[in-house]
């Protein structure tokens, strides 16, 4: 792309040089004409006139040459500076710039980056555990992707029937369904006279759990379910934390109904939150809290610190 521009620049420069030569020649002609004077002394009478006309001719030639050179010079601009790089060329002391060492380091760094990228891509290819089944290979992956995507796209009627089934299953646990956000169902679970839990579902997958006391209000002033505010009692805040970990424990995108049922069974174990002593230390209170943990499989009551020994 830059080649035609370069050639015009070079041709301009060569004509300019030629013009400079011509100018020098014409100027030197003026001075030689003046110094030599008239060669033949025969025409002395008209000698002055001849000399003057010769000088005038020579000066006109100088003038025309100079104006030509000026015209060419006005076309040709000085080249734009190449920022700092062009200045480096001007500096004869090259050792003053750490450019070379910097360049070397950059090369080393780039090599390392390339090496690490290759290693990590190799490792990632080996580990195919991906929650979003977007890049699965083969028929099995296609199957799981189809099932996975359907678990949160369950029609509201199906969710309602599952919840009704669970509501009927337990005597002392009532579940009400509201849909303040459109499709997503929000369950308010009242467990005996012990606690109230707010569960946000996406399809049948549990998205969020918050536990509050029986005497705390789970509805805001505008009758909306209060999902976010934590309980004012330490014991229920702790139970909320445990419920969140249980939610992740029971998470099963392929069998969301089973996961929800398992979670509800686990939550139902909290009916004896205040009346069951710890399975391990046989005490009610440790750190001023009752046994807030329920075993995932056997539903035994444990204090938070006692459960590590139970697992």
């Amino acid at each position: 792309m830059a080649a035609p521009a370069d050639t015009t620049v070079f041709s301009d420069l060569s004509t300019a040089l030629r013009k400079v030569q011509e100018l020098r020649a014409s100027v030197s002609r003026v001075f030689t004409g003046l110094s030599e004077g008239l060669k033949d002394g025969t025409l002395k009478a008209n000698g002055d006139k001849v000399l003057l006309s010769q000088l005038e001719k020579n000066l006109l030639a100088v003038n025309s040459d100079f104006s030509d050179l000026q015209k060419i010079a006005s076309h040709h601009h000085a080249p734009p500076p190449h920022y700092n790089a062009s200045l480096i060329v001007l500096d004869p002391v090259t050792d003053r710039h750490p450019l070379f060492t910097q360049l070397l380091q950059t090369h080393k760094w780039a090599n390392k980056l390339h090496e690490h990228a290759a290693l990590s891509s190799h490792l990632l290819q080996q580990n195919l555990l991906k929650r979003s089944h977007t890049s699965g290979i083969g028929a099995m992956a296609k199957k799981t992707r189809r099932l996975g995507s359907s678990s949160h796209a369950i029609p509201p009627q199906a969710v309602d029937s599952v919840v009704q089934g669970m509501d009927a299953m337990y005597n002392n646990m009532s579940i009400t369904v509201t849909r303040p956000f459109g499709q997503a169902a929000v369950l308010v679970v009242t467990l005996a006279k012990t606690l109230r839990a707010v569960i946000v579902l996406r399809g049948l997958l549990i998205e969020w759990v918050s536990v509050k006391g029986f005497n705390e209000d789970v509805y805001k002033e505008n009758k909306q379910v209060d999902i976010w505010s934590p309980s004012k009692y330490a014991v229920y805040r702790k139970v909320s934390d445990h419920a969140s970990s249980a939610m992740l424990h029971f998470y099963h995108p392929l069998k969301p109904e089973l996961a929800l049922r398992s979670f509800m069974l686990w939550l139902h174990a909290y009916v004896s939150l205040f009346s069951t002593p710890c399975h391990k230390c046989n005490k009610f209170l440790v750190d001023n809290l009752p046994p807030t943990w329920r075993d995932m499989r056997f539903l035994d009551a444990y204090h938070e610190n006692c459960r590590t020994h139970s697992m």
Binding site: G213, F274, S275
Partner: peptide, 11 residues
């Protein structure tokens, strides 16, 4: 946190 006596008697 508790609202029923019989539940938290031991505690």
């Amino acid at each position: 946190p508790a609202v029923v006596v019989s539940e938290c008697f031991g505690l």
